[in-house]
Design a protein around this nucleic acid. Structure first.
Lengths: 215, 215
DNA sequence: GAATGTGAATGCGTTCACAGCG
DNA sequence: CGCTGTGAACGCATTCACATTC
């Protein structure tokens, strides 16, 4: 049943499924079933089938899923059947690492602009691109068709940078700064806090060596 | 009631709460209530109280939470009351960006080693550290007290790198490679797939411009 | 026969609303 | 009186089990 709502937890898994399918493709598999996808993705088959059923009926009963076809459908659902264009805001170490990260192009996202507030950095040439001023965000985004902003500025500057890109019309933001930023309700924001991830791991390390209570 | 299980969703929010408390500290707040934490963290007050109640009773009814005290408790729960030591595996662009990322030290995690499989990179000096061989993981981790591995190698090498660090005794892994890696059940693994995050954003961009069905 | 797609059952997480306490 | 801490209600996500389809 192809209805018009996909649960957020399902959406989070779709990129994983697509990655697995692309891998299957590279291994010259033509067909795959829910068990196969589940194994590659690290879930269970029922989950895979339920997730995919929110999108439509892309499988063949008794057979499984056509790898190419399902990959194409997922790409379309994820909106990467035509390349998405992103801009990096904040040309520090993390920003420049992401700018040249090869894993984006392969997966439907292209970094087409790099912005910074620091006039000393503006004008720097990087990998066939030039760092531009965040003040010109609106023109740059319009010119390059940017739809996603990747914020890699220091925490103190995160809200300012966010406001600028929102003002420039961007509706999707990935924020690497460890700060809670506010966005209008029509803007989608995702937080990528690496230190928080490490703290979560650290929590689990505590649990491993003998249970501890409050103390 | 300080019982012995904290739901995973709660654990994910604890680092956010801690970050908010540190911010409150820096603003010289002595007390904060659940509403205040919720606003800073971007949740609601009931959620905050419920989450904190899994850890114990750290508030004062009619008053709120002592900022310093609660921060200290959260640090302990997150296992960062004494610094956690991490190693970066894969000295590419992302690895080197993370190696010098200032946001770790402030939040209880220190990068104390950088490893790589490429013998050309081994020996490179970086920021008072030297890139070492992944073959020596065991000795290095023992010497430096490494408990967390941050994997920043290419996808193809991710499983190999993971196996090496697991063999070296690490029980917590943050994997930036966009590949599903297998770990023994006593090892905690978290996936940090930046491209997947962008794809999730892209999905939502689709939803924004007019509903689309299967097609 | 084999594997999908899906209602129904179960389990979790969030929200509500208020009792309990400083 | 105000705010925490928490059982109970609710809603969402996962799992089960099977009818359906190729």
């Amino acid at each position: 049943m192809s209805e018009n709502h996909v649960p957020p937890t399902t959406v989070q898994r779709l990129p994983v499924y697509l990655r697995c399918l692309l891998r299957a493709q590279s291994q010259r598999m033509a067909l795959i079933n829910s068990v196969g996808i589940a194994e590659m993705a690290g879930t269970n088959a029922a989950q895979v089938r339920k997730d995919l059923s929110y999108l439509g009926e892309y499988g063949t009963r008794g057979v499984g899923y056509d790898v190419d076809e399902l990959a194409a459908h997922l790409s379309r659902w994820l909106g990467i059947d035509t390349e998405r264009r992103a801009a990096i805001v904040g040309f520090g170490r993390l920003g420049s690492a992401l700018q040249s990260y090869p894993g984006f192009e392969d997966r439907g996202v292209r970094v087409v602009a790099v912005l910074d507030a620091d006039s000393a950095k503006v004008g720097t040439a990087v990998d066939g691109m030039t760092v531009e001023s965040i003040e010109d965000a609106k023109e740059i985004f319009a010119r390059e068709g940017v739809e996603i902003a990747i914020i890699t500025v220091p925490s103190e500057a995160a809200q300012r940078a966010t406001d600028k890109v929102v003002e420039a019309g961007v509706k999707a933001i990935l924020n690497f700064a460890p700060a809670s930023v506010e966005v209008p309700s029509d803007v989608v924001l995702r937080q990528a806090d690496v230190a928080a991830e490490l703290q979560i791991l650290s929590f689990h390390l505590n649990r491993l060596r003998g249970a501890r209570s409050t103390r």
